[in-house]
Amino acid sequence: MGGIVSPGFRGRRGVEGGEVRLPPGQYLTEDFPVLTAGPTLRVPTDTWEFVIVTETGEKHRWDWQQLMALPSERPTVDLHCVTKWSKLHTSWQGVSLDVLLEGVDTAADYAMVHSYGGYTTNLPYEDLLHGQAWIAYKFDGEDLTPEHGGPARLLVPHLYLWKSAKWVRGITLTDEDTPGFWESAGYHDYGDPWREQRYQGD
């Protein structure tokens, strides 16, 4: 990257064919850098809600207690941030989107993820399915802190981390692809770290 945005995070470079395999251009970090496009909000769980809206306008709503009552999973995943740090073997707990979308009748091709505070990010609907995405509320066995997106964030670790929206509030399913917060300002529409899809045109 050029002079404007310094990654600012340094770590051991992954060795191709060695013990650590990292996507191209990524560096390992052991800590958990906090990136945010605005102030960090504390969203109380007593008013928290998560809403899926289909392309026909049908709404599916969960409050915090309902989310907690759903079966959860404990994925261990690698995180790859577009600012070039990667953090490996992170432990989460959350509800798979497969569970949340089970009773949702949709033929949508795309999803727009919305957060408390106004952040958005888009991805293909398929990328929410088949054990690839969770609404995560615990990290390393502890409640997810506000700085890392608590009480709950989207976790889609096969894409760059800007897609794993913090403070997630809902998902709108659509027929058309619409770019989100970073996708409309130069970042790649899909963001596959293994194909190094950082910017539009990559």
């Binding site: 945010t36 102030p39 960090t40 909000l41 504390r42 506000p146 700085e147």
Partner: peptide, 8 residues
């Protein structure tokens, strides 16, 4: 919602 931190 209340402000948790504001790092700007």
């Amino acid at each position: 919602m209340e402000l948790f931190s504001d790092d700007f």
